[in-house]
Design a protein around this nucleic acid. Structure first.
Length: 893
RNA sequence: GGGAGUUUAGCUCAGUUGGGAGAGCGCUUGCCUUACAAGCAAGAUGUCAUAGGUUCGAGCCCUAUAAUUCCCACCA
């Protein structure tokens, strides 16, 4: 006997279900050559992170795919994990230390790392626990951390490999320096922000008389100037080129040179050149062999080379320079200018270009194969426009600065001989140097956090060991992520996978939008407009949250977070819950056996009737459509279709239609009704399970005699045998008749308790036969006391209200209730509508071009429509014109 | 400076290869009909941003324009 479920839906069930799934180890998989794998690598969550709604969206999408494929019989691995998040974690720990009055330098590297590991142990698992509340079905037994031993080996192996190939090198280059975080950052980590700034005009005295005027946005870098450049074609400067200008205050003599880089139209046409602090100037400087003078310390203050300005912050120095130039009469003017300023995306401080010795990955050779797999279609990127961004980035890629002046992360596996300075790259320092020295010092820097995440798709499977997992699960099927980490992560995984494994890390990349607040703003700490998913889950449940996030939006667009939408989802779940309750109640009231059987309407003892066939047919088609939608990553539409089917067709129509059969214990079609009811509910549950895993599991369990999980039940497959187009058409007639009658009743304010008589007149035998077979249902849903089904109008009161449907007219003898005027209006509205339809179809078919050029199927459909509407129109006109005399009817209202 | 989105009902958004404009919320009206008032039933609401073009036929394809959002970029 089936179990009963609680009276109202409550998301409190979720915790226990997840616990059961974990206990049963339903998420865990092993390589199995007899089954096809389906693999998703979960983007590792930062250990510093807290669950936000963005996570909820991205993990909901991944879980939908995983659960869908699992039910389709794939051996599905969804591998979770966390990222050490080098810089964020380090900053966080340093901040915590500040409260104790300690700095990193105070305690030293080793003690700091000790704290970091301790911190990771204490807080690193929080986000994982929060993730579980979402219902994610990932294989927790395979959870990985980017600084696990195995994953670290992968990092060193890769570094050494690339170094030996000459693709990792150490060089002194102009890099992006974050003065606040005190480390280099990669180009990708610099955010260019357009803002209003000042363009200052100054002049340098020229030796031999005169001045040269120039403009700059960064006066403090004057101290590092080693030339002034003008365009070779610029006539205005002909007489000063080759002469020497003098920087006041510090008295440095610098040449006036020519370089095509200079834009004649900008500023004064002359540019001060600071090779140590500007990428362009660096280029110019190397072309002209100019000295490079670094005037800044790592913390953004001026260094000794700044002479009298040494020790000042860059901001203070700027002010002082301006006032000094003013005092000397060398200041001309200040203009406001809109220009891009580079800031560090993590801390927002202005990035300082500096020359430093750093480690780089040479990108040219790595980028090419990554571009090839995209161009050849081997790597599919959804949506397609993201692919263009991918290609554009790779085509214009520059070398990747991978060293960071931090402690938390993978330390660069390079060792320097203390005697001669020779570099050795390897897992350990060598025994002895070529110079005979035996003391080595490891490089102080760690690697960019993305260097290790770039290896995630295979390092998590055991590489560089040759494992069964790597062999079986790699490459993964799809990578799902927000478009914001395309450059940071996705591209780097692709070229890393291609280089180290020789195969792309995933076949598809699916980018989705971000979750915004109700006003469409990005959620951010500064606006304090973030939505806490944990609160939402507490109030509405993970199912409601997940459903809300994926429904009603196309994936690639951003979505707004509305509480009302959450309620809509919650209401739907309650609807589903109560539909299930209804089914369970009826199954329970049934004698054993009749309602059992998992599939819809396939039992010999319970042949489905026409209504059953209708819902079976609909369920069948919807299953096919939902499957197609998920397969094409159209989760929103898939969810919407399942939602509509459950609510509109199953609950509002089928369940209502089937009630009279259920309430009559003697009805011979009752077993079929029960069977179909249960079977269709199960199809609904299965279609919904990827989206709302908890509630579907709970109901599914209640429907089963034995313990079974919906997770591993078979996904509904489309079957032609379950297609019943004729039954569908008939039931559509039934629905139109009922809707028409209801409309009339409402017009007349006839309460549901007031039963009426209904006469259905149709010359069509099949239509009459159908209505006869569903007579009782028809009567109940139409609120009829009795129904007469006949071929002509015999006995129909002249004052009866007609409702015209396709193939029949229904008469409601409502004399005493009828509001004649209202009915007249209604019929005329009908007439107008039908006339428009007829006219539209007629004009279309009268169009020579249409008949000549349109596909035959479209023309045939159009003809059928014309025919149908013409008939209905004629019926309506007949009612208006002849048999129905409104004007002389009594009006008792 | 380059590129990509978006513009559809009062609000938020769907609308797969071009073939009769949709949903949720909100609104109007009537219902506690023994699964569900987190519900049921019936309704109203759109120059599909603008202007051209292609086509028998355009919300969908092409061109231009406007508004708006985002990404990329070394003009001081």
């Amino acid at each position: 006997m089936t179990k009963q479920i609680e009276k109202t839906y409550s998301p409190q069930i979720e915790g226990a279900i997840y616990k059961r799934w974990l206990e049963k180890r339903y998420f865990h998989v092993e390589p199995d050559a007899s089954r096809r794998p389906y693999t998703i690598m979960m983007p590792p969550a930062n250990i510093t992170g807290k669950l936000h709604v963005g996570h909820a969206l991205t993990f909901a999408i991944q879980d939908i795919l995983i659960r869908f494929k699992r039910m389709q019989g794939y051996n599905t691995l969804w591998l979770p994990g966390t990222d050490h998040a080098s810089i964020s974690t380090e900053v966080k720990i340093a901040d915590a230390m500040k409260e104790e009055g300690l700095t990193k330098r105070d305690i030293g590297r080793e003690a700091f790392l000790e704290r970091a590991w301790k911190w990771r142990g204490e807080y690193g698992g929080i986000i994982v626990q929060q993730l579980k509340l979402l219902g994610v079905s990932c294989d927790w037994d395979r959870e990985r951390f980017t600084m696990d031993e195995g994953l670290s080996n992968a990092v060193y192996e890769t570094f050494i490999h690339l170094y030996n190939k000459g693709w990792i090198y150490r060089a002194e280059r102009l890099i992006n320096w974050c003065p606040k975080c005190q480390t280099t950052i990669s180009d990708a980590e610099v955010e260019h922000e357009e803002m209003d700034g000042s363009l200052y005009y100054f002049k340098y005295p020229v030796e031999g008389g005169g001045f040269i005027e120039f403009a700059t946005t960064r006066p403090e870098t004057i101290l590092g100037d080693t030339a002034v450049a003008v365009n070779p074609d610029d006539e205005r400067f002909r007489n000063v080129v080759g002469k020497t200008a003098v920087i006041p205050n510090i008295g440095r003599r610098i040449p006036i040179i020519m370089d095509v880089y200079v834009d004649k139209a900008f500023g004064t046409g002359a540019v001060k050149i600071t090779p140590a602090h500007d990428p362009n100037d660096y280029e110019v400087g190397s072309r002209h062999s100019l000295p490079i003078i670094n005037v800044m310390n790592d913390d953004g203050t001026m260094n000794a080379a700044a002479g009298p300005y040494a020790g000042q912050t860059r901001e203070k120095c700027r002010e002082n320079i301006i006032s000094d130039f003013k005092r000397r009469g060398l200041y001309i003017k200040t203009e406001t200018i809109r220009h891009a300023v580079g800031t560090h995306e993590r801390c927002d401080s202005v990035v300082e270009p500096l020359i430093k010795m750093q480690w780089f990955v040479k990108m040219a050779d790595l980028a090419k194969p990554a571009l090839d797999v995209y161009n050849s279609g081997k790597l599919k990127i959804v949506p397609a426009r993201a692919g263009k961004v991918y290609a554009h980035w790779l085509e214009n890629i520059r070398d990747w600065c991978i060293s960071r002046q931090l402690w938390w992360g993978h330390r660069i596996p390079a060792y320097y001989c203390e005697a001669c300075g020779e570099i050795f790259v390897g897992a350990q320092a060598p025994e002895i140097c070529v110079c005979g020295g035996a003391r080595f010092k490891q490089d102080e820097d760690v690697l960019d956090t993305w260097f290790s995440s770039a290896l995630w798709p295979f390092s998590t499977l055991g590489w560089p060991e040759k494992t069964r997992e790597l062999d079986y699960f790699y490459p993964s099927d799809v990578l799902v992520t927000g478009y914001d980490i395309l450059f940071f992560w996705v591209i780097r995984m692709v070229f890393s996978g291609l280089e180290m494994i020789g195969e792309i890390p995933f076949h598809d990349v699916l980018f989705h939008g971000i979750v915004r607040d109700a006003l469409g703003r990005k959620m951010s700490k500064s606006l304090n407009n973030g939505v806490d998913p944990l609160r939402v889950i507490e109030d509405f449940g993970a199912d409601a949250l997940r459903l809300m996030l994926v429904t009603g939006n196309s994936l690639d667009n951003d979505t707004r977070f509305y509480c009302e939408r959450l309620e809509t989802s919650r209401n739907f779940l309650n609807k589903l819950w109560n539909a299930a309750r209804f089914v369970l109640m009826n199954l329970d009231a049934d004698e054993p056996g009749a309602g059992s059987g998992p599939s819809a309407g396939s039992g010999p003892s319970a042949e489905p009737d026409v209504m059953d066939k209708w819902i079976i047919s609909r369920a069948n088609r919807v299953s096919r459509d939902v499957t197609q939608r998920i397969d094409s990553y159209d989760m929103g539409m898939a969810a919407q279709m399942a939602y509509d089917f459950v609510w509109d067709e199953f609950c509002d129509w089928y369940v209502e239609m089937v009630k009279p059969r259920l309430y009559d214990k003697g009805d011979p079609t009752r077993p079929a009704a029960l069977r179909t009811l249960k079977g269709t509910l199960i199809v609904c549950l299965k279609l919904l399970h990827p989206f709302v895993p908890f509630i579907t599991e709970e109901i599914f369990a209640a429907l089963q005699d034995k313990e079974e999980t919906i997770m591993y039940s078979a996904w509904p497959a489309y079957s032609e045998a379950c297609d019943y187009p004729e039954e569908e058409q008939m039931v559509e007639r039934l629905k139109s008749a009922i809707k028409g009658i209801r409309a009339v009743r409402l017009d007349m304010s006839a309460p549901p308790s007031q039963k009426i008589s209904v006469v259905l007149v149709s010359p069509d035998n099949a239509v009459r036969g159908f209505f006869t077979s569903v007579q009782r249902t028809f009567a109940v849903l139409a609120g009829a006391r009795e129904t007469f089904i006949q071929a002509d109008k015999t006995g129909v009161n002249g004052n009866a209200v007609p409702v015209v449907i396709d193939g029949a007219t229904v008469y409601l003898p409502l004399d005493e209730l009828a509001d004649r005027e209202k009915e007249k209006e209604r019929l005329n509205r009908e007439k107008k509508k039908l006339s428009a339809e007829v006219e539209r179809a007629r004009r279309k078919l009268a169009n020579e071009g249409f008949v000549k050029k349109a596909p035959p199927q479209i023309i045939a459909e159009e003809r059928a429509k014309l025919e149908k509407y013409r008939k209905m129109l004629a019926d309506v006109e007949e009612q208006i014109g002849s048999g129905y005399n409104y004007l002389h009817a009594p009006n008792n209202k």
